[in-house]
């Protein structure tokens, strides 16, 4: 399968006040591929992907320079409709964060805020999203129960379903397994592999094995700098940069 560019990052820098947290990053992220961002904690991984759906807008005193092109639109430009952007670029967070509402209302939320009124359509979409998130069979009889009753792993898959229901093009995973047990982690990883047929996936992880297992491409960030980016298999076996090699061999991080 040919590689098509979905997200094109060029000369991207990001500042917290005067601190430069991301330094002139340029890279292309490909459609229907899983791209992993790895690096030691505090290297700017999360900051980086939170730019793709402009979540950093919420943090006062921050500023981005450069360009991120998604589907032909420079999303950092002024006048970009961030609401529209966030419908195209979904996000799953580190800690499962279901709303204190029913399972059904959690998944339908994205449609609700889009002012979709068609009840039958919403029900179909919710069911489809739950099936695609491999959660439907477990909870189909208790769609009206509170989402907070689910286990951590189920909650995270619910958050994925919630994201899928909006039908985004890109899904950002910000350390989705950080607070899960190994069994739940395995389920999420399988799910990610499944989802890449239909979506472009970017996943931030500090777990190198996880990156090696799920991703097609891997980028190594170190103190805000993109050190190395390439096909995962290659990066993990024959890294080009000595810093990548040191990181992979556990010298730091």
């Amino acid at each position: 399968m040919e590689n098509e560019v979905e997200i094109s990052v060029s000369d991207l820098s990001f500042y917290y006040g005067k601190t430069k947290a991301l330094k002139n990053i340029s890279m292309d992220i490909y459609r229907n591929r899983v791209t992993a961002i790895i690096g030691p904690s505090g290297c700017g991984k999360s900051t980086f992907i939170r730019l793709f759906n402009r979540m950093n807008d919420l943090v006062p005193g921050t500023r981005a320079e450069g360009r991120i092109n998604i589907g032909g639109l420079d999303i950092l430009g002024t006048g970009v409709d961030v609401v529209e952007l966030r419908r195209r670029v979904g996000m799953v967070f580190q800690k499962p964060n279901p709303f204190p509402k029913s399972i059904f209302r959690n998944v339908s939320y994205g449609l609700e805020v889009k002012n979709v009124k068609d009840k039958i359509y919403i029900e179909e979409m919710v069911e489809e999203a739950l099936k695609n998130a491999a959660l439907y069979e477990e909870i189909k009889d208790r769609l009206n129960d509170s989402a907070l009753m689910l286990s951590g792993g189920q909650q995270q898959r619910l958050c994925i379903a919630r994201c899928l229901a909006v039908k985004p093009e890109v899904i950002l995973f910000d350390e989705p397994c950080a607070s899960l047990d190994p069994v739940s982690t395995k389920k999420i990883e399988d799910l990610i592999t499944e989802l890449k047929k239909d979506y472009t996936i970017v996943i931030v992880t500090h777990n190198m094995q996880q990156a090696a297992r799920v991703s097609d491409y891997t980028a190594f960030l170190y103190f805000g700098e993109l050190v190395e980016y390439g096909i995962s298999e290659k990066l993990f076996t024959v890294p080009a940069d000595s810093r990548t090699e040191e990181y992979l061999s556990g010298k730091f991080g």
Binding site: N53, L58, R87, F93, K95, Y109, G110, V113
Partner: peptide, 27 residues
């Protein structure tokens, strides 16, 4: 109200007012 509720709502394409009305205020 945990910030994660607001982030989740905004990340799903809710506007700020929708986030307040549907998530923050009820909670």
């Amino acid at each position: 109200i945990p910030q994660s509720f607001r982030e989740a709502s905004l990340a799903l394409g809710a506007t700020r007012w929708q986030t307040i009305r549907k998530i923050v205020l009820p909670a």
